[in-house]
Write a protein that binds this DNA or RNA. Structure first.
Length: 755
DNA sequence: AGCACGCCGACT
DNA sequence: GTCGGCGTGCTC
């Protein structure tokens, strides 16, 4: 391969003052950094870690991050190339963030370059400046002469612009205001060599000017002591778990703690599961502080994300509110981190190679920063409760609801031996009728969207399968299609059995079907359905909420979506249609999930002076999980569930990592995992890592998904350091296995699901 | 991950 | 005779 002379080391002028070697992390899956010489002509003595550098890589150019500077390279001199240029004057990460990213790369066994570059917005990854620039236009010497001569004679627009610029340089936005289609004229003038542009750094457009910050409602005694506890810790690391059901006033605690942090001149980071579901949280921060918080979520455009990131980095953003990835926002003056609904699984990245937990990383980040972190939830994760018991988190709690409303009455409806009408028991129908008559709103919760989960032939028993997954296709009546919820495949709805030609019928219930049934049974009660098919964007959601809040809608049917974020003060009855999915799952975390959903959905019932009622329909009324939950509430459930985890050796009493593989057929995936297990066994023996054990490989419970076969191998250890030491040795070896070339694989440290 | 090289099958 | 399939190897 021919190489240009200018990027080799042979031009180094003076070997006595050997040039420093730049260790640069690049966005590649390769687990190493790359050595470069400083850009030609750059003889600086100080190099800061965390600045971006443009480098040649193979035959391409890449933006990398400087992670270290060494006196010399372990590579032969002739392999070193020269960096092309330095992008930043200052690091694009604050010091604690840079450390956090190194830590995360080690902990999750993910290549450093991917982690570092992945923490930047797309445009920054491509080399966009860390500050907005203002482009200024001015006349050249030729241009000044041309202006005096009244040129260009045949282009009045250009002439006018040249005259204006001759009397003083202008910023681009001034030009835009002064001339229609200024760009065309400017381009021509520049082509003639009459004007030239220059860049200087400036601020991104500011938001609306700060309004008057409003005072909040008075705090309850419990809220006050929670706020005091957090405020007393400002300036040191301490983690708090704030317990409180929906409407108990957690947000008010966040707001007061945030206010105290702002008063100290520090930034506040607030992480939420989904911003789309919590527009009112953004709104409350905006109202209280008179300025909109800087938000990060998936709907931002690349440019919006870059601007938000710059505001964080410059320290102009005082309050930053975002989903999972916002844990990587640069915050040079961070003073407090809040994690709302800390139990929510969406804090764990479940896709792609870098499977991090934003909640866990937030704790690590706060620790490095020496600042408090406040976790909030009505239904904390068992990990967090365990951490409270172990003295690692300080427990704070907000009892009951603000306003002193009664807690809802929970009742189990035994479905056995009942004649059901549209999957509703008689007692359920009676309760709905009663609450509607009493002017209450009724929420029906079913965690299954679509019309029905299966399409069955009533003659031969054929069931509509997904052609690419080990799953059935769900019927969607709204657009008469069959959809696979696992791979997204869809096709038109069938009416006859493809095997025997007999009529097919939907079996089971989805939200669409329940909606249809409820409309038929309660025609006088306007209904709103809340699920992913119904709510496509922010506007749909706002409209649905508006119909519920005005009281116009009386019935609400929804999936998981209704258990999150929004509160429905008019709801007096909650019906859980089917609690049974989750009672018998193979996944060790299913019970926790179910309990959280039940408690969260029950929490939507009864507000103000009307006591709420919650009905849980089940075929298994005696199931111990339901019984514990009913008798002991979430705390009682959590105590029992943690004991079960302890005796069954599940997290948080052991640490897990899952190696997952997939291939077009099952054997290569299994062969790879078997080879990985053998390699692991050797490492375990050689290093005396007795606490580590390997389990599997086993096919996933739904082995075929999107035409690929999935399998996994579980690594387990009672000791986190041992697991980490093991993984650090194992993963590079696993990558190098010949079997690895025939599969796709990922390592999931602290997996949320094990199937 | 990209990207090139290289060595075997169906087309102008 | 070439276009292109993806196996293999390399990137400071």
């Amino acid at each position: 391969v021919a190489r240009h002379a200018d990027d080799t080391a042979s031009t180094a002028p003076n070997p006595a003052h050997r040039e420093p070697v730049l260790k640069v992390a690049l966005d590649t899956p390769l687990r190493r950094v790359f050595d470069y010489l400083p850009p030609a002509g750059d003889a600086r003595h100080e190099w800061s870690r965390g600045i971006r550098i443009r480098v040649p890589f193979g035959r391409r150019q890449q933006v990398g991050v400087l992670v270290d500077v060494a006196r010399q390279s372990e590579l032969p001199q002739d392999k070193l190339r020269r960096a092309l240029g330095v992008i930043d004057e200052r690091p694009v990460y604050d010091a604690a963030l840079l450390e956090l990213l190194h830590w995360a790369s080690d902990y999750y066994q993910h290549p450093l370059g991917n982690v570092l570059l992945g923490a930047l917005p797309t445009l920054a990854r491509a080399g966009a400046a860390d500050q907005a620039t203002i482009t200024q236009w001015a006349v050249t010497a030729d241009g000044a002469a041309a202006a005096v001569a009244g040129e260009p004679r045949r282009a009045p627009r250009q002439r006018e612009m040249l005259q204006r610029l001759a009397s003083g340089a202008m910023d681009e936005d001034e030009l835009r205001d002064a001339f229609a289609d200024w760009r065309g004229a400017a381009r021509e003038l520049m082509r003639r060599g009459f004007i030239a542009s220059s860049e200087r750094s400036g601020a991104d457009p500011a938001g609306p000017p700060p309004a008057e910050a409003r005072a909040g409602p008075p705090l309850s005694a419990e809220q006050q002591s929670a706020v005091q506890a957090v405020c007393a810790a400002l300036g040191e690391y301490r983690s708090f778990l704030l317990r409180g059901i929906t409407g108990s006033g957690k947000t008010e605690v966040y707001l007061h703690a945030a206010a105290a942090t702002l008063r100290r001149g520090r930034q506040v980071l607030v992480l939420v599961p989904e911003i789309a579901l919590t527009p009112q949280l953004v709104e409350r921060f905006a109202q209280r502080f008179g300025v909109a918080p800087v938000v990060f979520h998936s709907a931002l455009t690349d440019t919006q994300r870059l601007i938000a990131w710059r505001q964080c980095l410059s320290g102009r953003a005082r309050i930053v509110l975002g989903t999972r990835s916002a844990v990587f926002a640069p915050l040079p003056a961070a003073g407090l981190i809040v994690i709302d609904e800390e139990h929510d699984p969406s804090f764990k990245q479940q896709q792609g190679g870098f499977r991090y937990s934003a909640r866990d990383l937030a704790l690590v980040r706060a620790h490095r920063l020496g600042i408090p972190v406040l976790l909030g939830s009505a239904t904390p994760s068992l990990e967090s409760l365990h951490n409270v018991a172990a003295g690692r988190h300080v427990a704070l709690s907000l009892p009951r609801r603000a306003g002193g409303a009664e807690p809802p009455i929970l009742r189990i409806i035994d479905l056995r031996g009942q004649t059901l009408r549209n999957r509703l028991a008689g007692a359920t129908i009676e309760a709905i009728t009663r609450h509607l008559a009493a002017d209450g709103q009724v929420l029906v919760y079913l965690n299954r969207r679509g019309y029905a989960p299966t399409l069955v032939c009533s003659a031969c028993g054929w069931i509509a399968p997904c052609t690419q997954c080990d799953a059935r296709m769900t019927i969607h009546r709204a657009d008469d299609r069959l959809r696979c919820h696992h791979c997204g495949a869809e096709r038109p709805l069938l009416h006859q059995c493809p095997q025997c030609g007999y009529a097919v019928k939907p079996v089971g219930q989805g939200t669409e079907r329940i909606e249809e049934a409820l409309i038929e049974m309660f025609p006088q009660a306007p209904l709103v359905r809340l699920d992913r098919d119904m709510v496509r964007n922010q506007e749909d959601l706002t409209n649905a909420y508006a119909r519920l809040h005005s009281g116009e809608a009386r019935l609400l049917v929804g999936t998981q979506m209704v258990t999150k974020g929004h509160d429905f003060p008019g709801v007096t009855l909650v019906v859980v249609l089917n609690a049974d999915q989750g009672l018998f799952s193979i996944d060790y975390r299913a019970a926790e999930r179910l309990a959280q959903s039940l408690v969260q959905v029950a929490g939507r019932a009864g507000r103000g002076q009307r006591p709420g009622e919650v009905l849980i329909q089940t075929e298994h009324p005696e199931h111990p999980m339901l019984q514990t939950l009913l008798r002991g509430g979430y705390d009682g459930f959590a105590r029992v569930a943690l004991e079960e985890r302890r005796s069954a050796n599940w997290p948080p009493f052991v640490r897990l990592a899952a190696l997952r593989a997939s291939a077009p057929t099952l054997p290569p995936a299994i062969d790879f995992l078997r080879a990985a297990r053998n390699l692991g066994a050797a490492i375990r023996r050689a290093d005396g890592l007795d606490a580590v054990s390997l389990n599997g490989p086993a096919p996933a419970s739904m082995a075929r998904r999107a035409d690929r076969y999935h399998a996994q191998l579980l690594v387990e250890s009672a000791s986190r350091p041992d697991l980490q030491r093991f993984l650090a040795q194992w993963v590079p070896g696993v990558e190098a296995l010949p079997e690895a070339r025939r599969v796709r694989f990922v390592l999931d440290v602290d997996p949320l699901e094990v199937f």
